[in-house]
C-alpha cells in the first residue's frame, strides 16, 4: 500500500521513461546499451537520441528512480567515460505500477471489444 502511494505521484510515465526503466529491469546498463536495448525490444519503433536519453536519465535520477551503479565491469571491458545505471527500489515499483496501469487500460479496451483479433485466428 505504502509502496503504491510512493509511486503514484510519478505516474503516468512518458513512453521514453517507461522504456528506459524497462531496459534497466534486468540489470544495470550504460547509456548506449539502454538505447540499443530499447531499439531492439521495440523493433526500432522507439528510437532514443542521445539528448532524449540523457534528459530522461537526468530526470529519473533526480526523482530517485534510477541511480548510478557503484560496481563496474572488469577493467578490460570497462570504458571509464561510461556510467552504469541501475533501477532503484522506487524505480522498480514505479515501473510495476505503470505496467499495471497499462494492463488495466488494455483490459478496459478488450471489455469494449476495442482490439484486433490476431491474424492467425481469422
Amino acid at each position: 500500500m505504502t509502496k503504491q502511494r510512493e509511486s503514484e505521484p510519478h505516474l503516468p510515465l512518458t513512453p521514453a521513461m517507461f522504456q528506459i526503466l524497462l531496459a534497466l529491469a534486468d540489470g544495470e546498463k550504460h547509456g548506449y546499451a539502454i538505447l540499443k536495448e530499447v531499439a531492439r525490444r521495440t523493433s526500432d519503433k522507439v528510437r532514443l537520441s542521445a539528448g532524449t536519453l540523457y534528459g530522461n536519465l537526468a530526470r529519473l535520477e533526480a526523482a530517485g528512480m534510477i541511480a548510478e551503479s557503484a560496481s563496474r565491469p572488469a577493467a578490460s571491458l570497462d570504458d571509464e567515460r561510461r556510467r552504469y545505471y541501475r533501477l532503484t527500489e522506487l524505480g522498480r515499483e514505479v515501473t510495476i505500477a505503470e505496467a499495471e496501469r497499462m494492463e488495466e487500460a488494455v483490459r478496459h479496451a478488450r471489455a469494449k471489444n476495442l482490439f484486433r483479433k490476431p491474424k492467425l485466428a481469422q
Partner: peptide, 21 residues
C-alpha cells in the same frame, strides 16, 4: 545548447553514445 550543469554531468557520456551510434 544544454545548461552548463547538465553538460558537466553528461557531456562525456553523450559524446560516447553518439560516437557508437
Amino acid at each position: 545548447l544544454l545548461p552548463f550543469d547538465f553538460r558537466a554531468n553528461y557531456q562525456g557520456e553523450m559524446e560516447a553514445v553518439f560516437r557508437e551510434q
